[in-house]
Write a protein that binds this DNA or RNA. Structure first.
Length: 583
DNA sequence: CGGACAAGCTGA
DNA sequence: CAGCTTGTCCGG
C-alpha cells in the first residue's frame, strides 16, 4: 500500500492505494503513478510507503506506474517548504519532478578525480571552508574561478548544485564548466521537452555538477556535496505564485539536511543571507576595482519641470560608445498637465487616478483603466506638458538630442536593440549584453519605491548596470540623475561599499519591524476572510488590514508558519504570500 | 480540478 | 415530466 498526493490543484489531501504485484519493485517514495480518483485517472506522487491504513476505507489499486520522480529527501523537503511558505504541496512536487516521463536513469559518467584549480584566491578559499558562507564579490568580478574551485574541492563521490538567477546565465556557466571537462547536467531549459527531461535524468543518475536557475533548487542531486547560489540577492529567485518559495532558502535548507556546505554569492548580499552565514569579502581595493565609476548628477537645483536630459547626460551621450538609458516607466507619459490651464490630467471616471499616456493620442487612468482622448477635461485644450515622461517619449527626445536612431527596449519588445544609444525600462539591462555606460534618468523612482527591500533592489539595479559596463579599469561609467545625491544606495555604489546599504537597511527594517527580523505573510483572495476568521488571533501574531487583504506579522517564521499551518484551508481562491516582495 | 448527483427551470 | 442547466460536494 502507498499514500499519494494527486496532481489535482484543489486537492490538499493524501489518498491510499494498493500496489499491484507487477509494480512492487518500481513503486517507491517519490515515484509517479496513475490512480483512479472519483471516476477519473490522474497523476499522483507516492509520498509514503506502507502507511498506517485508515480504518473503514476500501482501497483501490494504482492504475499505472509512470516513472521516476523526486527522491525521498526532496519529497520530505516539499513538506518543509509547504509549511515554510504556507502553501500546497502539489506545486512543489511539480517543481521537483522531471518535465517529461523518465522510466530509467542513464549510467552515471565515469568517476573522474577532481583536480585542484589554480588561484581561486584567499577570499574564495576561505569562503569554501565555512559550512555556511556568504561571499561578496564585486559586480565585475568573474565568478567562474570560484565555481571551478568549489567543484574541484568536492570529494570524488560528491556533486554540487549551482544556481544562477536566470536560465541564460545558467546555460553559459554550464557550457563553460563542460568545456573544462566537468560532467554537467544543465537543468535550466527554456521549455520542457525531451532535452530537459534528459538533463533531469542525467542529474538524477549522479556524477554531474547540476546547474540551473530558480527551479533547479528542486533538481535531483543524489550525492549532494555543496550548494552554491550565485547572485543570491536577485529577486528572480523568489517564485511569484504561491507558495512563494525562495530558491536560495530551499537550496540552503537542502544543503543543511544533506550535511553539505552552502555558499551564497553576491556583490550586495541580502540581510537574510548575512544573518545566515559567515561573510567573506576581498580587500577594499580589490572590491573597488570591480565597481565602475559612478557619476551622480544632482538635479536639486534644476527647475522641477525641466526634462530628464541634463547637460552631464548629454555630454556622456556624445562622448561614450554604447549607452543604455534606463527609466522604469513605459509609454509616453505617466503624469501630464494641461499646457494652457495647467490643470493636472486626472481621471474623469474615478476622480483621483492620474492619466497616463500609453501611446500617442490616448489617455489611460493608472487607477481604474478608463480611457479617453488627449483633451483637457477642464479647458478642452489638446496640448499637454509631460511631467513624468515614459520610455517612448524620452526615446524621441533622446533621438533629437543625439541626432541618430535610438532603440526602445521594454519588457514587451522582443528584438535586440541595435542602435548606439538605447533607452528602456529595467528590461534593457537584461537585453543588452555590453555597454560603455549606463544612465539612470530617474533613479529616485527606485530609491523612493515603497517596495519592501527597496534599498537592496535599487542597489541590485546598479549592480546590473555595473555588470554591463564592467569595472572602472575598463572605463565603464554609470550615471544617475537624482534629487537625493546623498542617498545611502548611491553612496554605497560610489564608494564600492555595499556594507553601507546593509547598515542602513538593517536599521530601517528593525525600526519598521520588517524581515529578516520579523516574518510576514499577506493573505488575499476571495476566501481570505474565511481564512482569517479561522486563524483567529493567536498569541505572537499581529494582524493588520481587512476588506479582502490582511498582513500578518510574527517574530519568527516558526511562529508565523505554525499558526498558518494550523488553519484548515477554506474552499475558494486564497493566496498566502510569505516573505512578500511588495509592501 | 472535474465527475456525480440533486435541485431548479422550461416547454409541451 | 423529459431534457436540460446550474450548483454543490467530494475523492482512497
Amino acid at each position: 500500500m502507498v499514500r499519494v498526493v494527486p496532481d489535482v490543484a484543489a486537492i490538499t489531501r493524501t489518498f491510499d492505494y494498493l500496489v499491484p504485484e507487477q509494480w512492487r519493485d518500481g513503486v517507491e517514495v517519490g515515484g509517479i503513478v496513475r490512480v483512479d480518483l472519483h471516476g477519473r485517472r490522474v497523476r499522483a506522487w507516492v509520498v509514503e510507503a506502507d502507511p498506517e491504513p485508515a480504518a473503514g476505507v476500501e482501497l483501490k489499486a494504482l492504475t499505472g506506474f509512470t516513472g521516476v520522480g523526486p527522491a525521498s529527501e526532496l519529497v520530505d523537503l516539499t513538506v518543509w517548504a509547504a509549511w515554510r511558505w504556507a502553501g500546497r504541496r502539489r506545486p512543489l512536487l511539480v517543481a521537483a519532478s522531471p518535465p517529461g516521463r523518465v522510466t530509467s536513469l542513464p549510467a552515471p559518467p565515469p568517476l573522474r578525480p577532481r583536480s585542484a584549480t589554480v588561484g581561486p584566491g584567499p577570499t574564495v578559499t576561505a569562503a569554501l571552508t565555512h559550512p555556511r558562507a556568504v561571499l561578496r564579490l564585486a559586480p565585475a568580478a568573474d565568478r567562474y574561478p570560484l565555481v571551478a574551485a568549489a567543484v574541484a574541492s568536492l570529494p570524488d563521490d560528491r556533486d554540487a548544485l549551482v544556481l544562477c538567477p536566470s536560465v541564460d546565465q545558467a546555460r553559459t556557466l554550464a557550457a563553460r564548466l563542460r568545456r573544462s571537462g566537468v560532467a554537467v547536467a544543465a537543468v535550466a531549459q527554456d521549455r520542457p521537452g525531451a532535452a530537459a527531461t534528459g538533463e533531469w535524468a542525467r542529474a538524477a543518475a549522479g556524477g554531474c555538477v547540476v546547474v540551473g536557475a530558480r527551479a533547479a533548487a528542486w533538481a535531483p542531486v543524489p550525492r549532494l556535496g555543496r550548494v552554491i547560489v550565485l547572485d543570491e540577492h536577485d529577486a528572480a529567485y523568489q517564485e511569484q505564485s504561491a507558495p512563494t518559495w525562495h530558491a536560495r532558502d530551499v537550496a540552503v535548507e537542502r544543503a543543511r539536511r544533506a550535511g553539505a556546505p552552502a555558499l551564497v554569492v553576491s556583490p550586495c548580499p541580502t540581510l537574510e543571507a548575512l544573518a545566515w552565514g559567515t561573510l567573506e569579502a576581498p580587500g577594499r581595493s580589490e572590491e573597488r576595482r570591480g565597481w565602475p565609476a559612478l557619476d551622480i548628477v544632482d538635479r536639486r537645483d534644476e527647475d522641477p519641470t525641466a526634462g530628464l536630459l541634463s547637460a552631464p547626460l548629454a555630454a556622456l551621450l556624445r562622448r561614450a560608445g554604447r549607452v543604455v538609458c534606463v527609466v522604469n516607466r513605459t509609454g509616453r507619459s505617466r503624469l501630464s498637465a494641461c499646457a494652457t490651464c495647467r490643470e493636472l490630467v486626472t481621471c474623469t471616471e474615478c476622480a483621483d487616478g492620474a492619466m497616463a499616456q500609453p501611446a500617442e493620442g490616448v489617455l489611460r487612468c493608472t487607477r481604474c483603466g478608463a480611457e479617453r482622448p488627449v483633451v483637457c477635461a477642464s479647458c478642452g485644450a489638446t496640448r499637454f506638458r509631460v511631467l513624468r515622461p515614459g520610455v517612448s517619449r524620452l526615446r524621441d527626445e533622446l533621438a533629437a538630442l543625439v541626432g541618430e536612431e535610438v532603440d526602445e527596449v521594454t519588457g514587451s519588445s522582443a528584438a535586440r536593440p541595435e542602435s548606439r544609444v538605447v533607452i528602456g525600462t529595467e528590461a534593457a539591462l537584461h537585453r543588452v549584453t555590453s555597454a560603455e555606460a549606463v544612465a539612470f534618468l530617474d533613479i529616485d523612482q527606485e530609491l523612493m519605491s515603497t517596495r519592501e527591500r527597496a534599498g537592496e533592489q535599487a542597489l541590485a539595479l546598479l549592480v546590473r548596470a555595473a555588470r554591463l559596463v564592467r569595472g572602472r579599469e575598463t572605463h565603464g561609467r554609470v550615471l544617475v540623475q537624482t534629487r537625493d545625491p546623498d542617498h545611502v544606495v548611491l553612496q554605497a555604489a560610489l564608494h564600492a561599499d555595499p556594507d553601507r546599504v546593509r547598515a542602513a537597511e538593517a536599521e530601517t527594517r528593525q525600526r519598521h519591524g520588517l524581515g529578516p527580523y520579523w516574518a510576514h505573510a499577506i493573505v488575499s483572495g476571495e476566501a481570505a476572510g474565511a481564512f482569517m476568521a479561522a486563524l483567529g488571533r493567536p498569541d505572537g501574531l499581529e494582524v493588520q488590514g481587512g476588506s479582502g487583504r490582511w498582513r500578518i506579522r510574527a517574530a519568527s517564521h516558526e511562529e508565523l508558519c505554525d499558526a498558518l499551518a494550523a488553519v484548515e484551508r477554506p474552499a475558494g481562491r486564497l493566496r498566502i504570500e510569505v516573505d512578500p516582495l511588495r509592501a
